[in-house]
Write a protein that binds this DNA or RNA. Sequence first.
DNA 1: GCCGGGTACCTTGCTACGCAAGATACCCGG
DNA 2: CCGGGTATCTTGCGTAGCAAGGTACCCGGC
Lengths: 113, 113
Amino acid sequence: MDSSSNVVAQLRRGVLEHCVLALTEHEARYAYDLVNDLAAAGLVASEGTVYPLLSRLRRDGLVDTVWRESPSGPPRRYYTLTPQGRASLEAFRQSWRGFRESVDHIVDGKARS
Amino acid sequence: MDSSSNVVAQLRRGVLEHCVLALTEHEARYAYDLVNDLAAAGLVASEGTVYPLLSRLRRDGLVDTVWRESPSGPPRRYYTLTPQGRASLEAFRQSWRGFRESVDHIVDGKARS
DNA sequence: GCCGGGTACCTTGCTACGCAAGATACCCGG
DNA sequence: CCGGGTATCTTGCGTAGCAAGGTACCCGGC
């Protein structure tokens, strides 16, 4: 019943998900903007990935949203972390380190005790 | 046509795949054994993940296989890297570094210039 | 006036992955 | 002869990522 094992299991899946949470940690962000950041980092290919992801986060109560006017263009939906989202992000930070080190270890050929 | 971009795109998907390649780099391995290593590293949950993965690798010409007797139990199918598999692993090592740093950067809140 | 392109939202349909569960079979010891 | 460890592989489910398409706002150029 290692509570972190589930997180690790989802890690391969949910890296992107938690990157989004991290990006919204300190300020409200909107999707189009997030896509640009994630694309610049090479982590995402298209909007078709991010919008459904944000819907899931909202459905699961990890983010809240508000509509705001845009200075130029249609209104934007801004995303902010809920306490639950914050907790999830914190758990991810722990799991990510373990995951990263496992992959480093294996890929660098230091496995096989 | 950045040839590495495709690898990065598949990275979220294929971490496990390339971990398997890395594990077979220096010696022939069999699936049951690989599952144990990967499970110990927290990277995989069950055999149902690894066997189809190995089939894919074989189908795509990244590994070769041979059957060998087991000292105790049914015969084992051993996997070894092909030159193509070796190249794929090498490409992954590059991509993994970039990916890892992107995630680190975002998760540690150093994004948003 | 309208038309194209940037901004911004979201959905649909496809492919494929990870996993739990189950099937099969070898070998050994009790 | 039967259960458990070793070892292979398959089936079926849920769901993620992506390309592509759809809608609509706003602005500047023609």
